[in-house]
């Protein structure tokens, strides 16, 4: 096939990137485990830590505006925000250790952390 000859490099590159994406996803998926609590930071500074097994709501005030974080049913989600793109709200809930919700305009990062009994044992069960 003529087209395949002239585009051999392209096809190999695309295949390599698809394999890379799949391998990364598999790696993250295999290593995932439920988190113990969420850590909320504004511009790199931790402002709050909430356990995931207790339902709660946390208003986050930043220089850029405010966000409302809800913890319910073992997962945390950004309920509302006044940032322009609302990507943090659209990201949906997070529950696995290492997952995060990021609101770039406000510099807010919500990260799921290992619980006290999490870490290696929880990951290898």
């Amino acid at each position: 096939m003529e087209w395949l000859k002239t585009h051999r490099g392209d096809v190999l590159l695309i295949a390599a990137l698809l394999v890379l994406a799949g391998a990364l996803a598999l790696f993250l998926r295999l290593g995932r485990h439920s988190g113990g609590y969420v850590s909320v930071s504004v511009r790199g500074e931790v402002v709050a830590e909430l356990p995931l097994d207790q339902d709660a709501s946390l208003p986050i005030e930043t220089e850029g505006g405010h966000n409302l974080l809800i913890v319910a049913g073992g997962a945390a989600r950004m309920e509302s925000a006044d940032c322009p793109d609302l990507l943090c709200v659209k990201m949906g809930p997070v529950r696995w250790a290492g997952e995060s919700i990021v609101c770039l305009p406000h510099g807010v990062v919500v990260t799921v952390e290992d619980g006290p009994d999490g870490g290696f044992d929880a990951a290898s069960r």
Binding site: I14, L17, A21, L24, L28, E99, S100, V102
Partner: peptide, 27 residues
């Protein structure tokens, strides 16, 4: 840049989907 500005390495979770979406959009 996001990892540097927000001082977090936890953005690795976005890598697979961004690798995939970058490839599809690039094609």
């Amino acid at each position: 840049v996001a990892a540097l500005l927000l001082e977090t390495t936890r953005l690795a979770w976005y890598l697979p989907v961004l690798c995939l979406s970058g490839t599809v959009a690039g094609v």
